[in-house]
C-alpha cells in the first residue's frame, strides 16, 4: 500500500461521522431522567403502603427489574434503547436488560448451557468488579476502624 497506517487512520477519522451529540445527549438525559423519576414514584408508593425506607428501595429495584425484563421480552427495551442510549443503559433497568436478553437469546442452546450459562455474559463483569471493589473497601474500612478505634 502506498499509504501508511497512521495516515490512513487520520483519513478514517475524517470520514467517520461522529454521533450527533445534539440529539443523543438530550435523549439520554430525558429517558434516563424519566426512569429515575419512575423509581422515585415507586419508592414513594411503597413508602405510602407502609414499608420502611430500605424495603421500599429494594422493592422498587425488584419492580424496575421486572418491568425491564418484561420490556426486554416483548422487544420494546432495545427499541427504546436505540433512542435512550446511556439513558437506558445506566439505570438498573439497563443491568436487568443485560441479564435478561442473553437468557432469552441463548435459550436456543439449551436451558442449562445456553440460558443458564450465558445469562451473565454481558452483566457478569458488573458483579465481578462491583463485589470485588466492595470487598476491597470492606477490608480498608476494617483496617481504618481498627487503627482509629
Amino acid at each position: 500500500m502506498n499509504i501508511s497506517n497512521s495516515e490512513y487512520g487520520e483519513l478514517t477519522k475524517k470520514r467517520s461521522p461522529d454521533s450527533k451529540m445534539y440529539k443523543t445527549l438530550p435523549k439520554a438525559f430525558f429517558i434516563g431522567g424519566i426512569i429515575c423519576t419512575l423509581g422515585e414514584g415507586l419508592i414513594n408508593l411503597y413508602g405510602y403502603l407502609g414499608m420502611d425506607e430500605e424495603s421500599a428501595a429494594a422493592v422498587t429495584s425488584i419492580t424496575l427489574i421486572f418491568l425491564s425484563a418484561l420490556f426486554t421480552g416483548v422487544e420494546l427495551y432495545d427499541r427504546i434503547a436505540q433512542h435512550g442510549g446511556a439513558g437506558t443503559l445506566v439505570p438498573i433497568t439497563g443491568f436487568a436488560n443485560a441479564v435478561v436478553s442473553p437468557a432469552i437469546d441463548f435459550k436456543s442452546e439449551g436451558y442449562v448451557l445456553g440460558l443458564g450459562a450465558k445469562m451473565f455474559v454481558i452483566a457478569g463483569p458488573v458483579i465481578v468488579y462491583g463485589l470485588s471493589a466492595s470487598v476491597v473497601y470492606g477490608i480498608i474500612y476494617y483496617i481504618v476502624s481498627l487503627v482509629a478505634g
Binding site: T72, Y77, D78, A81, N97, S101, P102, I104, I122
Partner: peptide
Amino acid sequence: FPLNYGGVR
C-alpha cells in the same frame, strides 16, 4: 450482542 439487548450502534 443478544438480539433483545439495548446496545447502541
